[in-house]
Structure formats: C-alpha cells, structure tokens
C-alpha cells in the first residue's frame, strides 16, 4: 500500500485521467496499453477473473454427467459444451492477462478462496434433467448478464464476451431442446424436469447478485462503463423472458407469488432468500468444497506435467 501523500495524481496523470474520462464518456473502448486508473484495473481484474473462474468451475456440475449421458448424441452435445466452457475460461484469463494479471496466480487465488466464482455452481446435478435446466435457466441468466458486457468499456473483455455470448446461446437452446424432448417422453422424465426446475429456479435468480440497494460496487462499475445495467434490471428482464418459456415447456416455476403485473408489464416474483445466497457464496453451499478440491487436484496432481513441458521447452528452445 502506498502512503496517502503519494495518492494525489501528478499533473500528467490528471491529463491522462481526463483522456480516460473522455473515452468512457464517448462510449469508446479502453485498450490494454491505454492509461487507466488503478481502481478501474483492479475492478476489472476481479470481475474478469471471477467470470473466468465461473466458466472453469462451471464445467463440473454438467461434467459429472459426461460419462453417463443417455445417448451418444447427448454425450457429444454435452462434451462440446463443457469443452466450450474451457475455451471461455481461456479467453477470459487471457483478457485478465492483458490487464497485468497472471493465470497461474488467479488460479491460486481461486483455490485459496481469495477470489470467488458464481455461486450457482455450488449446487449438485442430481439427474440428467439438470443438464437441460442448467442450459435453459443458468445459461439463460448468464446470457442476460453477459450480453450487455459485449459493450463493456474494456475492449478485450467486450470482444471476448461477444464470442462467449454466441456460444452460450447455443448452449441455452440445447438445454431447452433437451427439456422439450424429456417433456415429450415418459412420466418419469417429466417428473425429473419439474424436480430440476424446482431446485434451480431460485438459485438462477440469485445469479444476478444482491438487490441494487445492497450492491456496494455497482455504482462505480456503471460509471466506468464496466457494467451497463443494475442487478435488479437484469433479473427482471430474465424473469420476464423465462416465465413464457416455462409455460411453453409445461413446467411450473416454484413461486406461489409469481404474478403478472398488468400496470408495469412485468412478472413479479416472491421474495428471494438472500440468506441462502450469502451462505452459498461464503462457502457453505452443498458443493463448494468438492468444486475447489477438484481444481486443487487438477493443479497439484498434474504439476509435474507443466514442469516437464517447461523443462522441455527450455532444452529445445521451443
């Protein structure tokens, strides 16, 4: 930490700050070699890393069904999806590296619990319907969150998000298509779908983060153009889109208070259990320990592989 007396910007820094502010005001992009305030850099690294971690940890809940997928076509679709998530993690870690972060260091922070990932991935996948519901609801919520980020003020992040969103939209359709197929199947399959919707609906609403009046970082992130809409705005958009999709699918969303508000033209949900959100995000969710243990094992058990690749590259000048 630098001493308080050093924090006043030097004169040339004032000019840089003005230029940065003008770029943001004009809705242009900040690029890696542009000057940026430390707070902006720090906030972006945190957000992009958290997003990258979410992609990588997010491979696990569905990955648990890869070996048991009930048809070869479903196995191919799921494998391609989990592979896409690894790819998303790679783009996003690369975007974080353009800000001066280091992938290995970010991975260590994930494993040590110093950086978070989306709490949705701390719930277990109990049946194959969960694969479909994750595609429909979890990826659907992720798209609602991420499409505005395609206009994020930081260029590399915005460009990564365009590609990520295109692939996520495939995943969402695949998930919904699996659920439609299962709803046309046996009574057991229909029951599986309803059960999965019952378990994932509320956690998916929590993916948008705490309500606006309890979201400490939102205002600054919106001023910087890192974020484009508030948590509650995005959540409302997601609810309005998901309710008709649930009706078309023939499932009931587990919220007795869900009502159509004619005046505003929005669906209104009952109260969200924010205590559960706090419990899960602070590490007490059903699968937190399992998710992190797997990342730790992938790093530690295979460290010798990375060491070998490095040693080989040094020997052979590759």
């Amino acid at each position: 930490m630098s001493a308080p007396t050093l924090e006043r910007p030097a004169p040339d820094e004032t000019a840089l700050q003005r230029q940065f502010d003008a770029t943001i005001a004009a809705d242009h992009r900040i690029e890696p070699r542009d000057w940026m305030p430390e707070g902006y850099r720090r906030t972006l690294i945190r957000q992009v890393a958290q997003h990258a971690h979410s992609e990588i940890v997010g491979m696990q809940p569905e990955g648990d069904w890869l070996l048991a997928a009930p048809s070869l076509r479903r196995k191919s679709v799921l494998l391609a999806k989990v592979q896409d998530e690894a790819g998303h993690g790679l783009y996003l870690y690369s975007a974080a590296e353009t800000l001066g972060a280091d992938r290995a260091d970010l991975t260590d922070k994930l494993i040590e619990g110093k950086q978070k990932y989306s709490s949705i991935f701390n719930y277990p996948t109990l049946t194959y319907a969960d694969v479909g519901v994750i595609g429909w609801l979890v990826d659907g919520a992720a798209i609602c969150n991420q499409v505005p980020l395609c206009r994020s003020s930081y260029g590399p992040y915005a460009r990564a998000m365009i590609r990520v969103c295109k692939e996520e939209s495939f995943h969402q359709r695949q998930g919904y298509e699996l659920l439609m197929t299962m709803m046309r199947g046996t009574p057991e399959q229909r029951a599986m779908v309803q059960d999965a919707v019952d378990r994932w609906w509320w956690p998916s609403l929590m993916m948008f983060g705490p309500p606006d009046d309890a979201s400490p970082n939102s205002a600054q992130s919106m001023a910087w153009g890192i974020k484009r809409h508030t948590n509650d705005e995005l959540r409302q958009r997601y609810v309005d889109m998901s309710v008709p999709q649930a009706q078309a699918l023939g499932v009931t969303l587990p919220d007795p208070d869900l009502t159509w508000d004619e005046a505003s033209g929005h669906w209104r949900t009952g109260p969200i259990d924010w205590d559960e959100f706090t419990r899960v995000i602070s590490g007490s969710g059903p699968m937190n320990a399992v998710r992190i243990a797997r990342r730790r094992a992938a790093r530690d058990d295979n460290a010798w592989v990375t060491e070998a690749a490095t040693a080989y590259a040094e020997k052979h000048g590759a």
Partner: peptide
C-alpha cells in the same frame, strides 16, 4: 472423457475434448 475437468491445463481440456468428440463421431 474421464480427464474432462481434471486435465493438467485448460488447453488440454480443450484438446482432449476434441479428440474424444472426434472418436465419438
């Protein structure tokens, strides 16, 4: 596929996924 989510590097998750997808096809 047993390596998926357990591979030594993210690049290897992608590569192993590719090989497995080709073979499944």
């Amino acid at each position: 596929t047993q390596w998926m989510t357990n591979a030594p590097e993210l690049e290897e998750e992608v590569a192993i996924g590719n090989v497995a997808l080709d073979l499944l096809g």
